[in-house]
Design a protein around this nucleic acid. Sequence first.
DNA 1: CAGATTCCGCATCGATCGATGCGGAAGTCG
DNA 2: CGACTTCCGCATCGATCGATGCGGAATCTG
Lengths: 202, 202
Amino acid sequence: METKQSCPVGRPRGFDTDEALERAMLVFWEHGYEGASLTCLTRAMGISTTSMYAAFGNKEELFRKVLERYSEGPSAYFTRALEEPTALGVATGVLTGVIRTTTRPSRPRGCLGVQSALTASDGGRAVRDLLTAWRNDSHTAVRDRFRRAVDEGDLPARTDPDVLARCLTTFAFGIAVQAASGVCRDELREAADAFLRGWPQA
Amino acid sequence: METKQSCPVGRPRGFDTDEALERAMLVFWEHGYEGASLTCLTRAMGISTTSMYAAFGNKEELFRKVLERYSEGPSAYFTRALEEPTALGVATGVLTGVIRTTTRPSRPRGCLGVQSALTASDGGRAVRDLLTAWRNDSHTAVRDRFRRAVDEGDLPARTDPDVLARCLTTFAFGIAVQAASGVCRDELREAADAFLRGWPQA
DNA sequence: CAGATTCCGCATCGATCGATGCGGAAGTCG
DNA sequence: CGACTTCCGCATCGATCGATGCGGAATCTG
């Protein structure tokens, strides 16, 4: 067993894997998992289906890698928001981030993690479940962060961190739906401000 | 030109149109517009594709009729909620209704109007736009209702009814996403209660 | 009953779905 | 250079997509 070396023999790949993944992400983001056909994907990626299968395995594996990229790219605001010092800061960061990401003019509207497969046919069930887990993980992360906030006295002791986290993620997912429906950025910001105005006071 | 008579000549239809539509609704609800194949639909409806096309036109027309049925059936809580005497009553009615409808054990989880086609391939664009309009209509109805509430002094004069309506529909859509993700009814109720706790006070 | 009309089972349409086999081209090694 | 490895263009696979043509069965009217 050899360790994977960085300079393999043979003809080198004729395209940039990273850029191809970026292009694929945009297609999945716009059309959803099952709505994005191989034809549409490979055309956007600038490669043949043969190359796609050789580099990424199959459509489902491609999507898994795309989701990973999405988490570390467009959705990276989420991890950053969790590191805010206060619970209100976390909530503000999450909502600001989701609004910015879901309404960026140069990108598809909405959230890839929400709209790629809320429903699916039999063939897309695995991806649908993957995305469900992705969303639930987000909730769990917020919940854990808010539990810590209660422990630290940052949130009132009477506050239920589970409920508050569910409240926040629900609103965030709703923003994703609104953005996918074409609602503009400013209007969502106002709604988010109104939502945050009801935040628990110490 | 004759008026359409209730007893047409020829062999009568061998199935109940209303029940077939109900069955189709459940399939679209669960699998989405493009995720529901003709095979899956007609099997659930208990009829052949020939009968489906004769009775409903095509897949898209079938979906339009299903959406209409959904609005008057599972989603009827919405119209009722708008008739509540106070804005808080409206909000409570909307959230209670959406939670109940999206988490009913005997029915698919989530909201047909949200999850049927947030994204689509080229062939599903018309339905996607139809559903976008459906959601936006919901928002407009709430907004108009809240404008009236401000006029009536039911909501504080400083309240922006547009923003408040956007806030409520966003949360409602978010509930639909959570329900589609398998979040249970009780948890959503608690989140909705928390949301309503931040409602504007007179 | 005879004639008209509608319904529906069966077979099938062309298009597209995701996925693969093959073979020559292109590159890296000794 | 020659051997070896990988990549990728082309053609195509079987399955499924939504949709339709045909013809006999069923039910109406007169």
